[in-house]
C-alpha cells in the first residue's frame, strides 16, 4: 500500500514529469496565460492518462510489440476526441482558447512515455494510479505557471480581479502598481518554468545535473 501511494506522490515532486523527466512540455507552455485554461487542460490530461493507462494495461498482452506505437496512438486519439467533443459541447469559448492544443494531447510525450514505461508492464490498478499521479504532477506545474502568469499579467485569477481595478485605480493600483503585460506573452512561460526548476533544484540538491 505504501508502494501504491508512492505511485501518486512521487510524480508530484521528485519525479515530476515536466521539471525532471522533461516530458509533455509542448502543451504545458502554450496555454498557461490563464489559470482557467491551465486547470481545464490538466483535467483533460488527467482523464486521458487515467483511462488510457488502464486500457493499455488491459491490452498489454494482446498488442504485438512491433505495432504498439500505433495501437497506443489510436487509444489516445480516441480518448482525446471524447475530451474535445465534451469541451466543445460544454465549454465552447474555452475550447476556442485551447484550439489545437487539445488535439496535441495525443502527442503529449507524458502519455506515450507512461504507456511505454509503465502501463505495458503493470496491472490495471497500478497503471491507473501511475497515470493519475503523473497527470497530477503535470497539472500542478501548469496551475503554478498559470497562476503567476495570470496574476502578474492581468491582475486577475480565474477572470476575477484580485488586485483591484487598473482603470479606476483601486486596490494595489492606487499605489502605482501596473500589470506586467509581458507575462502574457509566450516566452515568459518558458522563463517561469525555468525559475520553477531553479527553485526545485535548489531545495533538492540531488536533482542537480552536472
Amino acid at each position: 500500500m505504501a508502494k501504491d501511494s508512492r505511485l501518486i506522490l512521487d510524480p508530484l515532486t521528485d519525479n515530476n514529469p515536466i521539471t525532471i523527466q522533461v516530458l509533455g512540455i509542448c502543451s504545458a507552455l502554450a496555454i498557461t496565460a490563464e489559470l482557467e485554461a491551465s486547470i481545464v487542460m490538466s483535467i483533460s490530461v488527467l482523464f486521458v492518462m487515467g483511462v488510457g493507462n488502464v486500457v493499455i494495461s488491459l491490452m498489454r498482452n494482446i498488442i504485438p510489440s512491433k505495432i504498439r506505437i500505433i495501437a497506443q496512438l489510436i487509444v489516445v486519439a480516441t480518448l482525446v476526441i471524447i475530451v474535445d467533443l465534451v469541451l466543445k459541447a460544454f465549454a465552447y469559448e474555452l475550447s476556442k482558447t485551447l484550439s489545437v492544443f487539445v488535439g496535441l494531447i495525443i502527442t503529449n510525450c507524458i502519455i506515450m512515455g507512461r504507456f511505454e514505461a509503465f502501463a505495458l508492464g503493470n496491472g490495471p490498478w497500478r497503471s491507473f494510479l501511475d497515470g493519475i499521479g503523473n497527470a497530477l504532477g503535470y497539472g500542478i506545474i501548469l496551475v503554478i505557471v498559470g497562476f503567476f502568469r495570470e496574476l502578474l499579467g492581468s491582475g486577475t485569477l480565474l477572470g476575477i480581479p484580485v488586485l483591484g481595478d487598473p482603470i479606476e485605480k483601486t486596490g494595489l493600483y492606487a499605489y502605482g502598481y501596473e500589470n506586467n503585460g509581458f507575462m502574457l506573452l509566450s516566452p515568459m512561460a518558458l522563463i517561469v518554468v525555468g525559475i520553477i526548476i531553479w527553485v526545485q533544484r535548489t531545495r533538492n540538491k540531488a536533482l542537480i545535473e552536472d
Partner: peptide, 23 residues
Amino acid sequence: VPPALRGLGITFIITGLMAIGFM
C-alpha cells in the same frame, strides 16, 4: 551557471530569451 540551473533550467531560460528575440 548556478548549479541548480545547470542543464534543463538554463535551457528553458535561454529558449525564453530566444523566443523574445524571435518576437
